[in-house]
Design a binder for these strands. Structure first.
Length: 532
RNA sequence: GACCGGUUCGUCUAGGGGUUAGGACACCGCCCUUUCACGGCGGCAACACGGGUUCAAAUCCCGUACCGGUUACCA
């Protein structure tokens, strides 16, 4: 039997990080077993479900690359079938009509009422006066138009049990389970009934979902039994907690738990997926970087943890605004993933920041050069820019230049956003100067105000016909430094600040070279930073 | 309250009767270097507590504490 799993979010908000992980585990399990990963939107709560949420969730899944198979099932479309099932159970005497008037209450008071009720000691779950109403009276009252809900008639004694793939044997005494409502008095089916009916209908073999459904599962097992269906296998996932080990909620933690936040913050889907996979599961080895294929290969339900994980972040700390490990992993992907996979992502980021130039896509002005991306091993000084600049042309707009620039600057970046912020100076003349960099590298050495423009003159004169290579640049700058009787670092860091606007980055020789002599000269002469 | 579940460095985790309790992130230090959030080396840091079982317990059992989930005509 091929496995069929489903991710079944309720569309009441964006895709939550915990939901995303649930979706991922379902996906991994499906792929691992050669089964199918299905999607069902649980929109039976008409009041709270929105189309926008559905769209947002779909977007989140697409971003993560968790593509579902078959048609999306909208639970509300199956309401008739759910009603039928409830009626069938009613007819078979496995459920009964409850004529207790529905209490009109807002969400808030409902929650309070639950807590209130919970305070009371052991209540009898079978004390509903309508539980044993005669069939005749029940039918009569219904025929008279009296509103009623349909409740499952849970047996007086016995217990439900199922073997959870993660938590092991689960048992619950019937006396701890109330006669749950299957159908509301307004005729709308309730979650537990809808889930069971749909899972049966969709042929779901494994239900993989959050631990918060563990007690629901007992109720659902009861419904399966009443319906005469065999329950699927269940695997409950530990929860993801906030740093204070409390609930990680949309309300309290806002953006930090939304997938769109990570997409918009410049995360790489593969990196985030990798991070998520390790939050509650481990292959039992020391490897931490896994491609999707590796995750699929190594994933198994029995290595899912039983204890919840903390999603660690520090509020009001820009450097640790989200889980450090997620940040690290994203950086790791940015600096080590194959360049040709990174390039399109950088392109998208630059496009969004209006820094993209179509020339970066064409190799037209490099007819004699190969299209292959430079590897980390190949020294940059042998590349096309140097060769091209020998003709006195600065080709800072070609495909090859773009590839080299990305390769050069990616090593210190954490997110894709860094390419358009910290790395902005590589792609635009309109970049900002970091105040700390100015203070540390410029104003501390007032002489630089004269020296750097002077250095610009040297560059201009020297590289009229000489190759603009790192080697030649180094010779020139070193000579200049000695002449001024200062340290190389003073000149280099001053230049770095003017050329890139920031205090960190790759080797300055590479920076000079990648920017080309024209921009170098122009920026060394600029007084903009000095006037800030 | 009741029912259920959990507890290994700050965080993610490995280990499931005999380990100097391993790795990763974060943090700190040193090195490299023209700076640096790259890289290299190193350091700090954990078995919740109390009883048992056993020659031996982080590991098995019981209890306690703490944390979490559920307890809706929400999902």
């Amino acid at each position: 039997m091929t496995t069929r799993v489903r991710f079944a979010p309720s569309p009441t908000g964006y895709l939550h990080i915990g939901s995303a992980r649930t979706a991922l585990y379902n996906y991994l399990y499906a792929k691992k077993t050669g089964g199918k990963f299905l999607l069902r939107i649980e929109d039976t709560d008409i009041a709270r479900s929105t189309e926008e949420s559905t769209r947002s969730i779909l977007e989140g899944l697409a971003w993560l690359g968790l593509d579902h198979e078959e048609e999306i099932v909208f639970q509300s479309d199956n309401a008739d079938k759910h009603r039928e099932a409830a009626k069938k159970l009613l007819a078979e005497g496995k459920a009964y009509r409850d004529f207790t008037p529905k209490e009109a209450a807002s969400d808030k008071t409902v929650k309070e009422a639950i807590i209130e009720r919970a305070r009371q000691a052991d209540k009898n779950m079978r004390d509903n006066p309508y539980r044993n109403l005669s069939e005749v009276e029940s039918d009569t009252r219904a025929a008279n138009g009296e509103p009623y809900a349909i409740r499952l008639k849970v047996a007086e004694s016995g217990k439900t049990s199922f073997e959870d793939e993660v938590f092991g044997l689960q048992e619950r005494d019937y006396s701890d389970t109330e006669d749950l409502v299957l159908l509301r008095s307004d005729g709308h089916p309730l979650y537990n009934l809808a889930v069971v009916c749909d899972d049966i209908e969709m042929g779901i073999t494994h239900v993989i979902r959050g631990q918060d459904h563990l007690t629901n599962t007992h109720k659902q097992v009861l419904i399966y039994e009443a319906l005469g269906a065999t329950p699927p296998k269940f695997a409950h996932l530990p929860l993801i907690l906030a740093p204070n080990k409390g609930k990680l909620s949309k309300r309290k933690h806002g953006e930090i738990v939304s997938m769109t936040t990570y997409r918009d913050a410049g995360f790489i889907p593969a990196a985030f997926t990798n991070f998520l996979a390790l939050l509650g599961w481990s292959a039992g080895e020391e490897q931490e970087i896994y491609s999707m294929d590796e995750l699929i290969e190594k994933f198994s339900l029995d290595h899912i943890h039983r204890s919840s994980a903390v999603f660690n972040f520090r509020e009001n700390d820009p450097r640790h605004w989200t889980d450090d490990k997620a940040l690290w992993m994203n950086a790791e992907y940015i600096r080590t993933m194959p360049l040709d996979e990174l390039l399109p992502l950088v392109k998208a980021e630059l496009k969004a920041a209006k820094l993209w130039r179509e020339e970066y896509d064409s190799s037209a002005d490099f007819s004699s050069q190969s299209n292959e991306a430079p590897t980390q091993d190949s020294p940059p000084s042998e590349g096309g820019v140097a060769a091209a600049s020998a003709d006195g042309v600065v080709l800072s707009s070609s495909r090859q230049w773009f590839e080299r620039a990305v390769e050069l600057i990616r090593h210190r970046f954490f997110t894709l956003k860094d390419f358009s912020s910290q790395g902005r100076a590589y792609f635009s003349e309109d970049y900002d100067f970091d105040a700390a960099a100015i203070a540390k590298n410029l104003t501390k050495f007032p002489d630089l105000r004269d020296w750097l423009p002077e250095l610009a003159d040297r560059f201009e004169a020297e590289f009229v016909d000489k190759e603009y290579s790192e080697e030649n640049i180094e010779t020139l700058v070193k000579a200049f430094t000695e002449e001024k009787g200062t340290k190389l670092g003073v000149i280099m860091n001053g230049a770095r600040t003017l050329l890139t606007g920031v205090a960190v980055g790759p080797s300055m020789l590479s920076v000079f070279e990648i920017l080309g002599v024209e921009k170098t000269v122009m920026r060394l002469r600029s007084q903009v930073a000095w006037n800030q």
